[in-house]
Protein backbone atom coordinates (compact mmCIF):
# COMPACT_ATOMS: atom_id res chain seq x y z
CA UNK A 1 0.00 0.00 0.00
CA UNK A 2 1.36 3.40 -0.94
CA UNK A 3 -0.03 6.88 -0.52
CA UNK A 4 0.14 9.72 1.97
CA UNK A 5 -2.74 8.65 4.20
CA UNK A 6 -1.48 5.15 4.82
CA UNK A 7 2.07 6.43 5.29
CA UNK A 8 0.95 9.09 7.77
CA UNK A 9 -0.66 6.39 9.90
CA UNK A 10 2.65 4.60 10.48
CA UNK A 11 2.35 5.26 14.22
CA UNK A 12 -0.99 3.44 14.40
CA UNK A 13 -0.54 0.14 12.58
CA UNK A 14 -4.08 -1.06 13.34
CA UNK A 15 -5.72 2.01 11.85
CA UNK A 16 -3.27 1.91 8.94
CA UNK A 17 -4.20 -1.69 8.26
CA UNK A 18 -7.90 -0.90 8.34
CA UNK A 19 -7.37 1.92 5.85
CA UNK A 20 -5.28 -0.28 3.59
CA UNK A 21 -7.92 -3.01 3.71
CA UNK A 22 -10.69 -0.59 2.78
CA UNK A 23 -8.80 0.83 -0.19
CA UNK A 24 -7.71 -2.61 -1.31
CA UNK A 25 -11.27 -3.99 -1.18
CA UNK A 26 -12.55 -1.07 -3.24
CA UNK A 27 -9.80 -1.34 -5.82
CA UNK A 28 -10.02 -5.11 -6.10
CA UNK A 29 -13.64 -4.78 -7.22
CA UNK A 30 -12.50 -3.14 -10.46
CA UNK A 31 -10.17 -4.04 -13.29
CA UNK A 32 -6.62 -3.11 -12.13
CA UNK A 33 -5.97 -1.21 -15.35
CA UNK A 34 -9.09 0.88 -14.80
CA UNK A 35 -8.03 1.60 -11.22
CA UNK A 36 -4.63 2.78 -12.45
CA UNK A 37 -6.26 4.99 -15.07
CA UNK A 38 -8.66 6.52 -12.52
CA UNK A 39 -5.79 7.37 -10.20
CA UNK A 40 -3.67 8.66 -13.08
CA UNK A 41 -6.47 10.84 -14.47
CA UNK A 42 -7.28 12.37 -11.09
CA UNK A 43 -3.62 13.01 -10.27
CA UNK A 44 -3.30 14.83 -13.59
CA UNK A 45 -6.30 17.04 -12.80
CA UNK A 46 -4.55 18.01 -9.57
CA UNK A 47 -1.43 18.88 -11.52
CA UNK A 48 0.55 16.15 -9.86
CA UNK A 49 3.14 14.20 -11.72
CA UNK A 50 1.29 11.74 -13.88
CA UNK A 51 1.82 10.46 -17.37
CA UNK A 52 -0.73 11.75 -19.87
CA UNK A 53 -3.49 9.34 -20.81
CA UNK A 54 -3.94 8.74 -24.51
CA UNK A 55 -7.71 8.84 -24.63
CA UNK A 56 -7.75 7.84 -28.27
CA UNK A 57 -6.18 4.52 -27.35
CA UNK A 58 -8.93 3.68 -24.87
CA UNK A 59 -12.02 1.67 -25.66
CA UNK A 60 -15.36 3.47 -25.33
CA UNK A 61 -16.18 2.00 -21.94
CA UNK A 62 -12.85 3.02 -20.44
CA UNK A 63 -12.97 6.45 -22.05
CA UNK A 64 -16.36 7.14 -20.44
CA UNK A 65 -15.06 6.09 -17.03
CA UNK A 66 -11.89 8.17 -17.29
CA UNK A 67 -13.86 11.25 -18.39
CA UNK A 68 -16.15 10.79 -15.41
CA UNK A 69 -13.21 10.38 -13.03
CA UNK A 70 -11.76 13.68 -14.22
CA UNK A 71 -14.92 15.42 -12.98
CA UNK A 72 -14.52 14.22 -9.40
CA UNK A 73 -11.87 16.66 -8.09
CA UNK A 74 -13.59 19.96 -8.87
CA UNK A 75 -16.91 19.23 -10.55
CA UNK A 76 -18.54 16.50 -8.48
CA UNK A 77 -21.77 18.48 -7.99
CA UNK A 78 -22.07 19.15 -11.73
CA UNK A 79 -22.05 15.51 -12.83
CA UNK A 80 -25.33 14.80 -14.57
CA UNK A 81 -27.66 11.84 -14.35
CA UNK A 82 -26.84 10.79 -17.96
CA UNK A 83 -23.10 10.87 -17.22
CA UNK A 84 -23.60 8.65 -14.20
CA UNK A 85 -25.96 6.39 -16.13
CA UNK A 86 -23.34 5.84 -18.82
CA UNK A 87 -20.84 4.62 -16.23
CA UNK A 88 -23.49 2.40 -14.63
CA UNK A 89 -24.26 0.99 -18.08
CA UNK A 90 -20.61 0.05 -18.54
CA UNK A 91 -19.77 -1.18 -15.03
CA UNK A 92 -23.13 -2.28 -13.61
CA UNK A 93 -24.40 -1.04 -10.27
CA UNK A 94 -21.87 -2.89 -8.09
CA UNK A 95 -19.09 -1.67 -10.36
CA UNK A 96 -20.37 1.90 -10.21
CA UNK A 97 -20.38 1.75 -6.41
CA UNK A 98 -16.77 0.57 -6.36
CA UNK A 99 -15.83 3.11 -9.00
CA UNK A 100 -17.39 5.94 -6.96
CA UNK A 101 -15.42 4.93 -3.87
CA UNK A 102 -12.13 4.44 -5.74
CA UNK A 103 -12.40 7.77 -7.56
CA UNK A 104 -13.39 9.73 -4.46
CA UNK A 105 -10.57 8.16 -2.45
CA UNK A 106 -8.05 8.86 -5.22
CA UNK A 107 -9.06 12.52 -5.20
CA UNK A 108 -8.81 12.77 -1.42
CA UNK A 109 -5.41 11.05 -1.41
CA UNK A 110 -4.06 13.49 -3.97
CA UNK A 111 -5.25 16.32 -1.76
CA UNK A 112 -3.65 14.75 1.32
CA UNK A 113 -0.40 14.60 -0.60
CA UNK A 114 -0.67 18.24 -1.65
CA UNK A 115 -0.87 19.38 1.99
CA UNK A 116 2.08 17.13 2.87
CA UNK A 117 0.15 15.00 5.33
CA UNK A 118 3.12 12.70 5.75
CA UNK A 119 5.40 15.58 6.72
CA UNK A 120 2.83 16.98 9.14
CA UNK A 121 2.49 13.55 10.73
CA UNK A 122 6.24 13.40 11.22
CA UNK A 123 6.78 10.50 8.85
Amino acid sequence: MSGPVHAALAGDPVLAEHYAAFRAKAESALNPRLVALIRQAIAAVHGMEAAAIDDAALDERTRVCVAYARRIPFEHTAITDPEAASVVAHLGEPGFVAFSVVAALADAECRAGLVDLEGLAGV
Binding site: P4, D12, V101, D107, E109, A112, L117, V123
Partner: peptide
Amino acid sequence: IAELGLGVTLFLALAKA
Protein backbone atom coordinates in the same frame (compact mmCIF):
# COMPACT_ATOMS: atom_id res chain seq x y z
CA ILE B 1 -2.60 15.19 12.67
CA ALA B 2 -2.33 11.74 11.07
CA GLU B 3 -5.73 10.81 12.47
CA LEU B 4 -7.19 14.13 11.37
CA GLY B 5 -5.78 13.58 7.89
CA LEU B 6 -7.42 10.18 7.72
CA GLY B 7 -10.69 11.65 8.91
CA VAL B 8 -10.78 14.49 6.39
CA THR B 9 -9.82 12.05 3.63
CA LEU B 10 -12.75 9.81 4.56
CA PHE B 11 -15.21 12.67 5.08
CA LEU B 12 -14.37 14.11 1.67
CA ALA B 13 -14.45 10.78 -0.15
CA LEU B 14 -17.68 9.73 1.56
CA ALA B 15 -19.36 13.04 0.74
CA LYS B 16 -18.33 12.92 -2.90
CA ALA B 17 -19.39 9.29 -3.24
